[in-house]
Design a protein around this nucleic acid. Sequence first.
DNA 1: CGCTAGTTCTAGCAACGCTAGCAGTCGTGT
DNA 2: ACACGACTGCTAGCGTTGCTAGAACTAGCG
Lengths: 195, 195
Amino acid sequence: MPARDRREREYAERHRLIIATARRLAEADGWAAVTTRRLADTIEYSQPVLYSHFREGKDAIVGAVALQGFEELTAALREAREATDRPGTALHRAAHAYIEFAVANPALYDAMFVLPTTLRFAHPDTPPALDAAYRELALAVEQVAGDADAETLTEVVWSALHGLVGLQRSGRLRPGHDTARLDLLLDRLASSGDG
Amino acid sequence: MPARDRREREYAERHRLIIATARRLAEADGWAAVTTRRLADTIEYSQPVLYSHFREGKDAIVGAVALQGFEELTAALREAREATDRPGTALHRAAHAYIEFAVANPALYDAMFVLPTTLRFAHPDTPPALDAAYRELALAVEQVAGDADAETLTEVVWSALHGLVGLQRSGRLRPGHDTARLDLLLDRLASSGDG
DNA sequence: CGCTAGTTCTAGCAACGCTAGCAGTCGTGT
DNA sequence: ACACGACTGCTAGCGTTGCTAGAACTAGCG
């Protein structure tokens, strides 16, 4: 059935187009400017087409973009890990990679962590990409866990990085001190003694 | 002019009523359920009245609620500081007070840190309440700064707490480990050596 | 008592997410 | 080869959103 194959290809292609366009519009003008009408216009289809791809509506589109974000974040963290030469610098590299990712893709980061999406965490049908990024970070954290629980520390590190990104981006922290904050954070989080 | 005095009193009273009602509705059903129509209905006035009080519209109302939140957060942190008996526990108490405040007032916290408001940070007309909360936290952080820059460390602590709140509330962290995470965070942030 | 100034309401706009139902197209069975 | 049936994408419209213009009403003053 070559005809159906072609249609399926076209459908999949349009699916990617919707996600890519939503992301591009969001990155250009913010998520508030990504309306279903504008998105439909940009891909040169009518609004209802979006709902044939994403039955749950706009939130599902945001979720699809977020999923892409988790995959890219995972890749960025993995790259940072593989580029680690000296032992003990893994967390440092991972943390910088995380912050750089968030700064370079603000709308993508919003889709992943701020906006309401249909993505479910800690759920049977949780996409693996969501856990993958976490596990990459965990690999870097393990090296500095000491006698602390590695999983708890990973969550702490993740939270701290997430908080830095959030406050930094909303202008609630002094500009120009980004690396100073990150380095201080890492210095303290990597130390297991009380000295 | 007793008539004008009365009118001014009534205006101020209604101003407070709008803010209190917006906050109550948000805390009950979330900010998405706080529409200008519902808010106007609840205070038993028409929609345009809201705009005579908040010319900049709904975001300004959210901002007014957020301002109240900063005042209350400042009070909570001050209370925690004044209740500190043993030296060295100030940060611990402050951090717990911060988290408890965020958990107890989720909608208020959203108004302060998540939702778009008309509040300006690091601006000439920044309301003092925004800095006050920060300074209260700084007082607790100072004690554990060691040779690190106290201001940078305060921002780091604030970010970490904010990140914990954010990820925790969106269900991205394991439930039931809240205090374990906070204690581990504080343990590490309060240690200035590299042990 | 009538004028004026200020206040509040009714009514409506544009834009939002979303959907019902109609055309048009394409593949299939006879 | 042709008519049927399923499917795809569109037009049009619903209910709701934040916000506003202009009418209607109220209250104070001469």
